[in-house]
Simulated assay, not measured.
Amino acid sequence: MPNMTVIATTAVPDHVRGAISRWMTETMPGLYVGTLSRRVRDELWQAVSGTVGAGAAVMLCPEANEQGYALQTVGERRRAPVDFDGLTLVAMNPVEIDNESVKTP
């Protein structure tokens, strides 16, 4: 049964954006929404996660759990999903500061 799926991308190659837009509508740059079957969604996510390069992507899709959705990510991001007793929470990774580039008065 098809379900609503959302994919958000950041700094991915153009061919990845093209592959996603074949199945989903790009409502704003890097944000895709569509109604996909599980098989199409899984194949599309496999293609995205294998070719994301230096960019990043997040996918939200329905799941039979307490929250009603699953969150999958690929690539380097400041926010990372963390499983907390069956609930997916988002943890913020601290920004690394290059001490050599910081000048003190």
Rank of each mutant, 00 (worst) to 15 (best):
M24C: 03
S101V: 15
A19P: 10
D42M: 08
T88P: 08
G18A: 13
A57L: 07
Q46M: 01
Q46C: 00
P105W: 13
S49C: 10
S37T: 14
E26Q: 15
G86H: 05
E96T: 05
A19C: 00
Q67P: 11
N65F: 05
Q46R: 12
V52M: 04
A57C: 06
T5P: 00
A54I: 04
A56T: 00
E26Y: 01
G53Y: 06
V95I: 13
K103Y: 14
P62V: 05
P105V: 14
A11K: 14
V90F: 09
D83H: 03
L87A: 06
R22G: 09
N3Y: 09
P13G: 07
V52G: 04
V33A: 04
E66K: 09
G55C: 09
S101G: 01
G68P: 15
P94R: 10
L36V: 09
D14L: 08
V48I: 15
I97L: 13
M59F: 02
A47L: 14
P29T: 04
F84I: 08
R78C: 09
N3A: 15
V33Q: 07
W23P: 03
V16S: 00
A54W: 08
V40A: 11
N99T: 11
V102C: 10
V102Q: 14
E63Q: 12
Q72M: 11
T27E: 08
L87T: 09
R41S: 09
P13A: 04
L44F: 01
Q67K: 15
E66C: 04
E26W: 06
V12L: 00
R79S: 10
T73Q: 15
P2F: 13
I7L: 13
P105E: 14
V74E: 10
R77N: 12
R39F: 01
L87S: 07
V58Q: 11
D98Y: 04
Y69P: 00
M92K: 08
V95N: 00
L71H: 05
W45Y: 11
Y32F: 15
R78W: 10
D83F: 02
T25C: 07
E96R: 06
P81R: 11
R41F: 02
A91Q: 04
A19Y: 05
V40L: 09
N3I: 01
Y32D: 00
T104K: 05
D85E: 10
G55D: 09
T9A: 07
L36W: 12
M1P: 12
S37H: 03
Y32N: 03
L36Y: 12
N93S: 13
E76L: 12
V33C: 07
T73S: 13
E100T: 10
G30N: 09
E96W: 01
M1L: 14
W45V: 08
E43G: 03
P62D: 12
A47E: 15
D98V: 01
V12C: 08
L89W: 04
A57K: 05
G30M: 04
R39V: 07
Q72P: 01
I97S: 08
T5A: 03
G55F: 04
V58C: 14
A19N: 11
T88G: 06
E26P: 11
T73G: 13
D83A: 06
L44P: 02
Q67Y: 11
T25G: 03
M59Y: 05
P81C: 12
Q46G: 03
V16T: 08
G50T: 10
